[in-house]
């Protein structure tokens, strides 16, 4: 039985919370797949990196010798989706790529270490963003 949802005209803000380092576990990869699907629904999205999740977007990842798929390029696709949404006035969709300042600094990283352009927010600023979300996935 397939339940029919009435989602016509529904607009929500989805937050994708990335808190885990890449490769040691699969969590980072599968959250990414969910983010990409959300673009098709033209929903607002916050892609947030905190705690060890900030390591997911560190430049220079080379996974050849560990036999795992390098998913760093996928973040480039997310950045493209965000740029498309920003530029196309017909698309009512706001995407933000956010890194928590405290998590970044605690791990010895700066904005220059990241593969994609990010907004760096303080914990207090990020707390507001999270609080305004309708659906939170990942964590």
């Amino acid at each position: 039985m397939a339940f029919e949802f009435d989602t016509e005209g529904v607009k929500k803000t989805f937050t994708f919370l990335n808190r885990k380092a890449p490769y040691g576990t699969i969590y980072a990869l599968e959250v990414l797949e969910t983010v990409l699907i959300t673009a098709a629904f033209e929903q607002h999205a916050n892609i947030v990196f905190i705690d060890d999740g900030v390591y997911q977007i560190k430049k220079g990842q080379d996974t050849k010798a560990v036999n795992m798929k390098n998913f760093l390029p996928t973040y480039g696709i997310i950045e493209m989706e965000k740029d498309d949404a920003d530029e196309d006035e017909d698309i009512d969709m706001v995407w933000r790529i956010i890194v928590e300042k405290e998590s970044m600094e605690a791990r010895g990283l700066t904005e220059d270490d990241f593969k994609v352009g990010v907004e760096v927010l303080s914990s207090a600023e990020l707390a507001e963003v999270l609080d305004q979300s309708d659906v939170v996935i990942g964590g």
Partner: peptide
Amino acid sequence: FRISGLGQLIEAGLGTDRLVMFG
């Protein structure tokens, strides 16, 4: 059970009042 795509998760997020995650 049935098998379907990830879009069904986003649709469930849109079509319900709360999405609660367990993991």
